[in-house]
Computed example of a mutant assay.
Amino acid sequence: MTTVNNEPGPASEPGTDMELYDLRIHVDRIEGRSVCGMMVDDYIDIVRSNEMRLPEGKHFCMYAFAAVLPMLSAKQRDLPADDWMNKDSLVACPDPEERLIMRIERTGKCQLRSEDLT
């Protein structure tokens, strides 16, 4: 199992039977007051289906992440071209004072074996 970021990978690697996108959720803009301490361009990466990675010494607000969570599974998969999930990548933090807007981006593809996942 390998992760290939920002490069087209093979259709499938030996022993793999599924392909998912790795994702980056980053703070696109803050239109209010950042109570949680996040700043524009802060991010968290989701790789290999379910691994969360943060830059050293950084944090990501769990409430902001909770707002993004329901969209991640769909964003990890290939979707029909006319599916709204292909066009909509912005998610708002639930704190109305912050007005923190996050963007979900695909950063690469990951080859996986479905039998290794639950």
Rank of each mutant, 00 (worst) to 15 (best):
M38H: 13
S12H: 06
D17P: 00
L23V: 03
E31L: 07
A66Q: 00
E7L: 02
N86G: 12
V91M: 15
V91Q: 15
I46G: 02
S114L: 14
L112F: 07
Y21E: 00
Q111L: 05
I44Q: 12
E105P: 04
T107L: 14
E115R: 10
P8T: 02
P80M: 09
A67Q: 06
S114R: 15
E19W: 07
T16K: 07
A11Q: 01
P55N: 05
S114F: 04
A81G: 03
N86S: 10
D88H: 11
Y43A: 13
I30H: 03
R77V: 06
L90N: 03
K75Q: 11
L72G: 01
P94L: 12
D45N: 15
E56D: 08
D41I: 01
L69R: 09
T16P: 02
P94W: 07
R106L: 08
A92H: 08
E105D: 15
P8G: 04
L23I: 05
N6A: 11
S114A: 15
Q111D: 11
E31R: 10
C110V: 11
I46M: 08
R103Y: 11
D41F: 10
E7A: 02
T118G: 13
A64F: 09
S73C: 01
L112Q: 07
L112V: 05
C36V: 10
A81L: 01
I30F: 09
G37E: 12
E97I: 15
V35M: 12
A92Y: 13
V35K: 11
